[in-house]
Amino acid sequence: MPELTRRRALGAAAVLAAAAGAQAVAAPPASAAPDPHHGGPESFEEVYRGRRIAGRPTAGGHHHGGGYGVFIDGVELHVMQNADGSWISVISHYDPVPTPRAAARAAVVELQGAPLVPFHAN
């Protein structure tokens, strides 16, 4: 049996790392569209501090929210879901919250009665 050398050990480690990387690349991506039946955010609509807030799945995948739209008084609030599952908005970008509803509520608080101006990300 051949002697195990540092060169052979490093070569074997490189082969294993390459194989693991190939499997990760070949794995089918998880769907980015929220699905309330599979852990995605639920739709909501309510009046919060005098403002109508709503959230629902949207058609198209161009949103950072993965096909989920949040609206304040009918104007879309740009939201994004982080890798850890938390949500941020263009209004409260540095204060992640657990749900899109919480992002809408945080934005209403930050707006202090001011109207939400549409934000075009592209």
Rank of each mutant, 00 (worst) to 15 (best):
A106K: 09
A83D: 09
E46G: 05
R56G: 07
H93E: 04
G65Q: 08
R56Y: 14
P36I: 00
R8P: 00
A27S: 10
H62F: 15
H62V: 05
Y68P: 04
A30C: 09
A14E: 00
V108M: 01
P28E: 08
A18S: 08
A12E: 03
I91R: 08
S92C: 07
N122V: 12
F119V: 10
P115L: 01
Q112N: 11
G85S: 14
V47D: 09
L10I: 01
F44L: 04
A54P: 06
P118N: 12
V97F: 07
A102I: 02
L111W: 10
V79K: 04
V90W: 13
L116M: 06
R56P: 03
R51S: 10
T99N: 09
V70R: 09
S86V: 02
G113S: 11
M1A: 10
A14V: 00
V108R: 05
A22I: 03
R6P: 05
A32G: 05
R52P: 01
T99W: 08
P29T: 07
R56I: 00
L10Y: 03
R56A: 15
P34Y: 15
A13I: 02
G67W: 04
A102L: 01
I72W: 02
L10R: 04
L116I: 03
R56H: 15
G55L: 00
V25L: 09
P98M: 09
A24K: 10
G40Y: 13
N122R: 10
E110N: 11
I53L: 02
A59W: 14
V75D: 06
P118F: 11
T5S: 12
P34K: 14
H63S: 10
A121H: 14
G61W: 13
P29R: 12
R51L: 00
L4W: 01
V108P: 04
P28G: 05
S92G: 13
D73H: 11
H63F: 12
G60H: 11
Y94D: 10
G67Q: 07
V79M: 02
V15E: 02
N122G: 15
H62W: 15
E110H: 15
A19S: 12
A54G: 11
E42T: 11
H37F: 12
G40F: 13
V70Q: 05
G65C: 05
R8S: 02
E3G: 10
V75G: 10
D73N: 12
N122T: 13
G69L: 00
I72K: 07
V117D: 06
P29L: 02
A24R: 10
A22L: 03
A26E: 01
V47P: 08
A121L: 02
P100F: 15
V47E: 08
A17W: 04
V79G: 03
A102T: 06
A102R: 06
A30G: 12
I88W: 04
D84G: 15
Y94F: 14
R8T: 02
E110R: 15
